[in-house]
Design a protein around this nucleic acid. Structure first.
Length: 569
RNA sequence: CGGGACGUAGCGCAGCUUGGUAGCGCGCAGCGUUCGGGACGCUGAGGUCGCGGGUUCAAGUCCCGCCGUCCCGACCA
């Protein structure tokens, strides 16, 4: 490809709206352009990278026995109503109405379509298992599109759907996808972790997230410094702290605590650390009141609480609830809670004693609160939000909180979709059975953004060669020098004929501009042909990732590029 | 949807406080000089100042409404 003919508009300055490195650099390097919030044009360079990622994904999907098909983006509403997702997806769904008043949507994923497809055309156990996938654009009206390709309203996703006779089969299909995903992300050279994620309200099955490490990532995970524990932050269970050495014999005493409705204020007033306070959080869950007890310096992980109380909807008390139920906000304690209130305490509360907590009376707290003498605990559960420095449940080592971007998610669905859609096959014994399904996604466009987050420096992008738009660039440093042009053209031709994806920078720009653009776009290998080198019969090579430079005889330059590419990340 | 900020040439910005008829850098076009890390000179093109309304002799500037974009918060690839 001759850059003089390529639509690759690079920007000298950072676009004002781009905050994240990937967003900024993909714009500057001429990979994408914004059309509207969360909607982008993929320019030729960006598309080349996307295609390369697609190729890796296709190879590994095909190798794992999956078959590619293509499903529509524009979908009828009815199946979505049948599975409940028409309502569940809420405002995230792009809905539209056709001229006859029929309701349609733009597909955010394709479970409904593929389930009905398989039910109609693969009615026998003999047809199973089957794994169908596609790579297609997805539409979600995100409440907040962010960071360029990291969270768009339109994004490219590989989505695969597995159909099995039984749960064992589903688990085998799941495992095949698990292994394929590892190979895919390994080949993409991403630094990533695999975590078992919250089952969530929909489906409730086994699922794993493949998370690329990134500082701008929105998904948090906990990782043991000794490397033996890894979990989604919302699902992570820390080892409870050692109980404080107190005998729980302190008497219950009421103390006056004016203007101390927060843990911090009480802590300051009484000169005691926050962890000596017993925090009582009140929730409304399906008509009953739930009190959650935990040390004052900790927060409730509401996702854990929701899972515990599922399917009851969980809502934290609002001001009106306190008044209606006779509680004094800021001075709530667990003493004397009525029978109807469920009292849950985090494991961290077990064993500790002599708590300071609310007196259930304005401007007053109590000291020396102990269970079961002064308050009851119905159940001890894991309810704290994990934080940096907590102890690993496996080895007691320190846990670190990391940030990441979810680039892949695999899911055992069971009959979540086959049941409401009445998708059945005839089993060997003649009985009708529901398909056991799995759903497996990879955010292709997000992989590019995640890679850009991981692979860049002050000069620009340095994507791994498997997804850089070109493997190498031949830079014509002196475009009006016949010998230079001839040598550059020859090296370019040799490389192209040798199967190397190579670009020739033959633009009417100064050498400095070409060097800067080459770094910005991040060709893994740069070859500079200039009059200085041509005079002594050499070309200069540079490895983008390390900045390492070398020379090669002009006649050997193409081979040298191929060799250097071998070593490029 | 709440909270914060922004919207002036393709990009980055100044001008707004104190209304007087729009400017800088980059980029773009032409000519010349340059030519190995974002060259220099001269000339030039390019703007309904986000949109609508209002105040005023006069609005980019003041007031009201709307739209758009970005950042921070409950979702997901």
């Amino acid at each position: 490809m001759r850059l003089s003919h390529l639509f690759a508009p690079t920007l000298r300055e950072d676009p004002a709206e781009a905050e994240a490195a990937s967003h900024r650099l993909l714009l500057r390097a001429g990979f994408i352009r914004q059309v509207a919030s969360g909607i982008y044009v993929t320019l030729p360079l960006g598309l080349r990278s996307i295609r390369k990622i697609e190729r890796i994904v296709r190879e590994e999907m095909d190798a794992s026995g999956a078959q590619e098909l293509r499903m529509p983006i524009l979908l009828p509403a009815e199946p979505w109503k049948a599975t409940g997702r028409w309502e569940l997806y809420g405002d995230t769904l792009f809905r539209l109405t056709d001229r006859h008043g029929r309701e349609l949507l733009l597909g955010p994923t394709q479970e409904e379509v593929v389930t009905l497809l398989v039910a109609g055309d693969l009615p026998s156990y003999r047809d199973l298992p089957v794994n169908l996938y596609q790579i297609e654009w997805k539409y979600r009206d995100e409440f907040r599109p962010r960071f360029g390709l990291l969270r768009g309203r339109e994004f490219l996703m590989k989505d695969a759907y597995t159909f099995d006779r039984d749960e064992d089969g589903m688990a085998r299909s799941y495992d095949a996808m698990f292994q394929a995903y590892r190979r895919i992300f390994d080949r993409c050279a991403l630094s990533y972790v695999i975590v078992e994620a919250e089952p969530g309200q929909i489906g409730g099955g086994v699922n794993h997230e493949f998370m690329a490490r990134a500082d701008v990532g929105e998904d948090l995970f906990a990782e043991c410094v000794n490397g033996d524990y890894l979990a989604d932050l919302k699902a992570a269970t820390p080892q409870p702290p050692e109980p404080a050495a107190r005998d729980g014999s302190a008497p219950l005493e009421k103390v006056h605590t004016p203007n101390a409705a927060t843990i911090d204020a009480v802590s300051t007033l009484l000169g005691l650390p926050g962890k000596r306070m017993l925090k009582t959080m009140l929730y409304e869950a399906g008509g009953t009141t739930v009190a959650v007890l935990l040390p004052g310096d900790r927060e409730v992980e509401e996702a854990k609480l929701e899972r515990l109380l599922f399917p009851a909807p969980v809502r934290r008390f609002e001001d009106g609830d306190f008044v209606a139920r006779g509680f004094v906000k800021g001075y709530v304690g667990p003493q004397g809670l009525e029978e109807g209130v469920t009292v849950l305490a985090d494991h961290a509360v077990r064993g500790a004693s002599d708590w300071v907590t609310g007196a259930n009376e304005a401007e007053h707290h109590v000291t020396g609160a102990n269970t079961p003498r002064d308050f009851r605990v119905d159940r001890y559960e894991d309810l704290v939000a994990l934080r940096d420095g907590d102890r690993c449940p496996k080895c007691g080592g320190e846990l670190r909180v990391g940030r990441s971007i979810v680039v892949g998610h695999i899911y055992q669905l069971g009959t979540r979709y086959s049941e409401p859609l009445e998708a059945t096959f005839i089993d060997e014994d003649g009985s009708q059975r529901l398909y056991q399904m799995g759903s497996h996604g990879i955010g292709i466009s997000r992989v590019l953004a995640a890679a850009a987050e991981q692979f860049h420096d002050d000069g620009g992008l340095r994507l791994p060669k498997v997804m850089a738009p070109f493997a190498a660039v031949v830079i014509v440093a002196n475009r009006d020098h016949e010998g230079v042009v001839a040598e550059a053209e020859r090296i370019y031709r040799e490389l192209a004929e040798g199967g190397v994806e190579v670009a020739l920078d033959d633009r009417e720009e100064t050498a400095g501009v070409k060097f800067a653009d080459a770094d910005l776009i991040g060709y893994p290998v740069q070859v500079v042909v200039g009059k200085r080198g041509v005079a002594v019969g050499t070309a200069d090579l540079k490895l983008r990732a390390s900045g390492e430079r070398s020379q090669a005889p002009l006649a050997e330059a193409a081979n040298a590029v191929v060799d250097l590419l071998e070593t490029a990340p």
